[in-house]
């Protein structure tokens, strides 16, 4: 309990810094996830009816997810220099697959009978998409967004290694001062707040998912 107490007093003592780092971490994550969502949903809609493009898009976004984060972060440095930018670009690539895959699966799962009747009532392809197919795929798309968010929050902690910010700052700070007072507390702050941020964002997204999904789709 001593550890917990000293940890808490460290948090209280550095509350401004903790808040700032959490905010920056959240900003990185939210920006990346929003961009990735727009991109992946649009791409998913485009490739869904084109089997070859679909396979290529999924395969490539799967490859991104295979490349270790530090390597992918580093690959962007020659392009944009150190800082948050290379981290965000890499995180964007990571965030694509879960959203893309769920968009495609969600659209695939829309019953052909529903599309047939939408068409049969005279809906244009755009109306079929906006009024029927996307709303039906939406809960699954949001699940993908949630997976991407958790992923992004966790990986963003190493942005510090390529000169970026976020909660990784506390982990890095603890590492460089390891053995000195408060170093372990600092590492724990970075770690715990990252997890808490992830869970908080997930809770918000889960609420959004609930509010934006039709009651008729709930099991």
């Amino acid at each position: 309990m001593d550890g917990l107490q000293s940890w808490w007093s460290y948090v209280v003592g550095h509350s401004d810094d903790v808040f700032e780092a959490t905010l920056e971490h959240a900003q990185i994550t939210v920006t990346v996830v929003i961009l990735a969502t727009v991109f992946s949903v649009a791409l998913g809609i485009y490739v869904q009816s084109r089997p070859t493009s679909k396979a290529i898009a999924l395969a490539i976004s799967g490859i991104f997810l295979t490349i270790p984060a530090l390597a992918l972060f580093a690959l962007f440095i020659p392009l944009v220099g150190p800082g948050n930018s290379p981290a965000m670009m890499a995180l964007f690539l990571y965030a694509i697959l879960p959203i893309l895959r769920n968009t495609v699966t969600g659209l695939d799962e829309v019953s052909p009978a529903v599309v047939e009747s939408a068409r049969g009532m005279g809906m244009s392809p755009a109306q079929q998409l906006w009024r029927v197919r996307l709303p039906l795929a939406w809960p699954l798309i949001m699940t993908g967004v949630r997976i991407s968010t958790l992923l992004t929050v966790g990986i963003a902690a190493i942005a510090i290694l390529v000169g970026g910010g976020g909660l990784g700052v506390f982990i890095q700070g603890g590492l460089t001062r390891l053995g000195l007072p408060n170093s372990v507390e600092s590492v724990w702050v970075g770690t715990v707040f990252t997890v808490v941020l992830g869970l908080a964002l997930d809770a918000v997204l889960s609420l959004i998912q609930r509010l934006t999904s039709s009651r008729g789709l709930r099991a």
Partner: peptide
């Protein structure tokens, strides 16, 4: 599943300590 947000970096340093 909720462990997905656990930062690998932090975990590594905690084990180092």
């Amino acid at each position: 599943n909720s462990g997905q947000a656990l930062p690998a970096y932090g975990l590594l340093i905690i084990f180092l300590a």
